[in-house]
Design a protein around this nucleic acid. Structure first.
Length: 597
RNA sequence: GGUCGGGUAGCUCAGCUGGAUAGAGCAACAGCCUUCUAAGCUGUGGGUCAUGGGUUCGAAUCCCAUCCUGAUCACCA
């Protein structure tokens, strides 16, 4: 039980005894005391003023007196306007620290046999181009969210649906076939996904040239787009693929395998992974069955032309096509098929789709349809919707090649980290292997933190040249603080100091120390909130505040040079636990922290 | 036009389940390394919290209207 819960009960009693009024825990609001005022924790008195029929100051005074009489850990209080500031005894905070230290996995819960299973879909790339900055946000959010759900005691299955078929895939295949001269990743030295992406751009260029030509010949733009020979060929190729034409199918397999190899490298570089991967080519036909089942149940209806629809007007939405008149499926049908396959494989209690906010409507519809088709988690499926990443020049467009490539970005980050580290002399005395480890951690840490600290819902701008900093509210700053603490702990070890598992409650604490303990004591609530609100940024902002506070403490107080042995050990124990919380927070964000940097 | 987001310092962002004088970082300027890692710490300047109204003891936060901005409203995925 934390201090706020403990005090809430006493406040309820106080109001009951003093003013004979029942209050609910919701009315009892605590906040951390502002630094300008004396105290650790503050009760907002206003909600009780009416019942007291007294001024806020007087009410606060009376409640304060009652609390002090009935709760020994309150050593003093003061009232300013309607705020009752309570000073809590050092002994309580020391006990609190001891309690935290005793917990093996402080702040996190481990899943058990009976824990609910949540499946999280993220990444969802197309196999016609390499991953870019937008995918990076997706991957980082998906991975972090998975870690956060795990920390809250869920069983988590990370999944990826690869969009490996369709007209857009055929475009890069066709362009390669016509203009590729047999190039391969081996012959060009290009990563497979980059090679394929190159031909996706080639297709677009050639296609545009054809359109221009046809318009010059007198066709309208719409006609030209439809009649361009390349487009007709691509459509023909898609038909052949669906008919399993051996040549096309083999080309498809070859090129997709190049891409997968490239993706694997990128995922590895980003430090994300999946427990199971689904391919659209395997699921896109499966939705049909479920749709027909829905038709038989009367949940869906058939039009005269034979197409099948869902009527969502009762939910305030439109009607939605699920099967074309010729029996072929659409995007929604595929998602139904994928859902069915997944549900066959796993006992899913909760499904989270990490997909950009441009698909809000799609998921609103999917949720209703899955629910009607009998998926028990359909209604409550979570579309973890995040905003776009924009460049200073505006939006990124794959076809036009104006994207920030994921591989380039990571490489650039790591290189910058290397340069900065060298300038600061941080790598002196490191082996090359250590140096690589550190710069990789720092470069990636900077990138990941930069992206994850922003509220996922918001669009964000990313300036490749200026966005990444290593000072201030950044990943490296947090990593640095961790490394600093570890350095102190190492030195303590070298001096033969053992850090106790618990310290004496009679040790006096400074304001900064109580504040730090209060801060880390709040960590479990942050972990829970991050899951409730699906927001890694909550963890990021929390750990930043903690680190900022620790650095002030580090600056103002000596640890190893402290004369009083007991105080020294208390500070070591405190530092050790701060480091632990930092490390856990960062791991929830998918960021590693170095022992030294 | 309908629906759903977003609008807070020059820039990037916190704060939004109503609480004290709206916070950080970057950028600018001024300090702090013979003392545990200066990727740090301290200070200065910088705000009509888009606008107008409402609810309230109290509004950046809740409600209404307006403006700006993004997404979406395909027999594309």
């Amino acid at each position: 039980m934390n201090i706020e819960q403990k005090l809430t009960g006493i406040v309820i009693n106080a109001i009951q005894n003093l003013y004979s009024t029942e209050v609910t825990p919701v009315q009892v609001q605590f906040q951390k005391t502002k630094k300008e005022f004396e105290g650790d924790i503050t009760l907002v008195v206003f909600p009780f003023v009416k019942a007291a029929r007294k001024s806020p100051e007087q009410t606060g005074q009376e409640i304060g007196e009652y609390l002090q009489q009935h709760e020994p850990i309150i050593k003093a209080f003061n009232v300013i306007k309607g705020f009752l500031n309570l000073s809590i005894s050092s002994a309580h905070w020391v006990e609190c620290l001891n309690g935290i230290n005793a917990q093996e996995a402080f702040g996190t819960t481990t899943a058990t046999e009976t824990s609910p299973l949540v499946m999280i879909e993220y990444s969802s790339p197309n196999t016609n181009k390499p991953l870019h900055l937008g995918h990076v946000r997706n991957n980082l959010l998906g991975f972090s969210l998975s870690e956060i759900m795990k920390a809250n005691g869920y069983k988590v299955v990370k999944t990826n649906i690869v969009n490996d078929r369709g007209i857009h895939i055929c475009k890069s295949m066709l362009a390669w076939q016509k203009f590729g001269n047999g190039e391969t990743p081996e012959s060009t030295g290009l990563k497979g996904d980059h090679l394929v992406g190159k031909y996706y751009v080639v297709f677009d260029q050639q296609y545009k040239a054809e359109i221009k030509e046809l318009i010059a010949q007198g066709q309208t733009e719409d006609e030209a787009k439809k009649n361009a020979p390349l487009m007709l060929e691509a459509q023909d190729m898609l038909r052949k693929w669906e008919a399993h034409d051996p040549t096309v199918y083999q080309l498809w397999q070859t090129m997709n395998n190049w891409v997968y190899k490239g993706f694997d490298e990128t995922y590895k570089k980003l430090g994300v992974n999946f427990d199971c991967i689904y391919y659209e080519s395997e699921t896109y036909l499966l939705g049909k069955e479920k749709v027909e089942e829905g038709l038989a149940n009367g949940v869906l209806y058939k039009r005269e032309d034979g197409s099948i629809w869902a009527d969502l007007t009762a939910d305030g939405l439109d009607e939605k096509l699920l099967l074309r008149a010729d029996g072929t499926s659409v995007y929604m049908t595929q998602d139904i098929g994928t859902a069915k396959l997944r549900f066959d494989h796993y006992p899913i209690d909760k499904m989270i789709y990490v997909v950009g906010n441009e698909q809000n409507y799609h998921f609103q519809v999917l949720s209703i349809i899955l629910d009607r088709l009998g998926f028990k988690w359909g209604k409550d499926l979570v579309h973890f919707s995040y905003g776009m990443v924009e460049l200073p020049e505006g939006k990124m467009k794959s076809r036009e090649g104006t994207v920030v490539d994921a591989d380039d970005l990571v490489d650039e980050m790591v290189n910058t980290a290397r340069e900065t580290s060298q300038e600061l002399g941080k790598l002196d005395g490191c082996t090359e292997e250590e140096a690589q480890n550190i710069t990789r951690m720092v470069g990636l840490g900077a990138l990941k933190y930069f992206i994850l600290k922003v509220d996922p819902r918001k669009n964000m701008t990313f300036n490749p040249k200026e966005s990444i900093d290593f000072n201030g509210n950044t990943g490296p700053f947090i990593q640095y603080t961790h490394a600093r603490i570890k350095s102190v702990l190492r030195k303590a070890g070298e001096q033969g100091i053992t850090i106790p598992t618990a310290i004496d409650t009679t040790i006096p604490l400074s304001e900064k120390e109580t504040s730090l303990i209060q801060h880390i004591a709040n960590f479990p609530a942050v972990v829970k909130q991050a899951a409730d609100e699906y927001s890694p940024s909550i963890v990021a902002n929390y750990v930043y505040d903690l680190v900022k506070e620790y650095n002030q403490f580090y600056h103002d107080f000596s640890i190893l040079k402290e004369d009083d042995e007991a105080v020294k050990k208390m500070r070591l124990l405190l530092s050790q636990n701060v480091a632990r919380v930092i490390k856990t927070c960062m791991s929830l964000l998918g960021i590693n922290v170095p022992e030294r940097m």
